[in-house]
């Protein structure tokens, strides 16, 4: 084995170890916890049936809880709607910023203005946002949260999508125009298919951010529009923290983005390396 191959092997082993410790182990541990009786929760036992007697009490309790289904539904609705809105509004904006300028500003200026909306910590805008949402009667309403999330995550979405458009050579657009396309046909037939990986990445990131978002959800919802992160955080009751319950809710909260990620993954990977392997 050459020293290059050995180094590569070592790097791969290291990477695998990191992935295992950082991502897989917590997952496995959470699954184990969800099956434990309260008395086993604080022990370092891993394997059910062998090391401890598993119980499905926590699963039964949670799956029968109507608020879980409600928050799960809200989260799916909010994250999906936010993603769709960010794509519908953000993709044309990103294309515009990639190709045109708004005199007297450069497209970089405009982009910076977009991003500057995200420089402030969310807490700073939290109170005015809450007041605004309340005043239009959207408090504890998923629509209010969707609007807030769209406003929050639009700039980042535009930034990512713009990168995808910048990667598309102008020649292709001009070839399409000469070949007989109108500008809209050119965008739909040539630009969009080529930007698809970048747009998929934008969708995934937006979905993930909206799914995990806590502060706005905390301020703008109470019960009807509550989302999963709040429900998970609310696992503690007067009896203290029920670890099995937290584990179950955590697992349920992680599943949907994981599924979306797996579905979109093959596009995204292409999107992230597209600039590097042009041609």
């Amino acid at each position: 084995m050459g020293s290059g191959a050995r180094r590569r092997l070592l790097a791969n082993v290291f990477l695998a170890a990191v992935v295992f410790i950082w991502i897989i182990l917590p997952g496995v541990w959470t699954i184990c916890q969800s099956l434990k009786e309260p008395r086993d929760v604080h022990t370092l036992r891993w394997i059910p049936w062998l090391e401890y007697e598993p119980t499905f009490a926590a699963w039964r309790e949670n799956l029968g809880d109507p608020q879980l289904l409600r928050t799960l539904g809200n989260s799916v609705l909010v994250a999906s709607a936010t993603t769709v809105l960010v794509l519908v509004v953000g993709t044309p904006a990103a294309y515009g910023l990639a190709r045109f300028r708004l005199p007297p500003f450069t497209s970089r200026d405009t982009l910076l203005f977009f991003l500057s909306q995200r420089f402030l910590p969310p807490v700073v805008v939290a109170v005015p946002l809450a007041v605004a949402v309340q005043s239009v009667g959207l408090y504890d309403n998923v629509v209010g949260l969707i609007v807030a999330h769209t406003a929050f995550f639009l700039p980042l979405g535009v930034l990512i999508a713009r990168g995808a458009f910048l990667d598309i050579p102008r020649d292709l657009e001009e070839a399409a125009l000469v070949d007989g396309c109108t500008r809209v046909q050119m965008f739909v037939r040539v630009v969009l298919p080529l930007a698809l990986p970048g747009i998929a990445a934008t969708a995934l990131v937006t979905f993930g951010f909206s799914w995990n978002e806590f502060v706005a959800a905390l301020l703008l919802t109470q019960y009807r529009a509550q989302t999963l992160p709040l429900f998970v955080a609310g696992s503690e009751d007067t009896w203290g923290l029920d670890m099995a319950r937290v584990a179950v809710r955590g697992l349920i909260a992680v599943a949907p983005p994981l599924i979306v990620g797996l579905l979109v993954q093959r596009f995204v990977v292409r999107g992230l390396v597209m600039g590097a392997v042009k041609g």
Binding site: E174, L177, D179, C181, L194
Partner: peptide, 30 residues
């Protein structure tokens, strides 16, 4: 007059072939 109505064809330095289409579809596009 927009390019599409000028009835000209252009060959680019970069060739500008549509990467997401097959050769057949590239030829048929126009």
């Amino acid at each position: 007059v927009p390019p599409r109505d000028r009835d000209v064809a252009m060959v680019f330095q970069s060739y500008a072939l549509y990467p997401h289409l097959t050769v057949y579809d590239n030829l048929a596009f126009g």
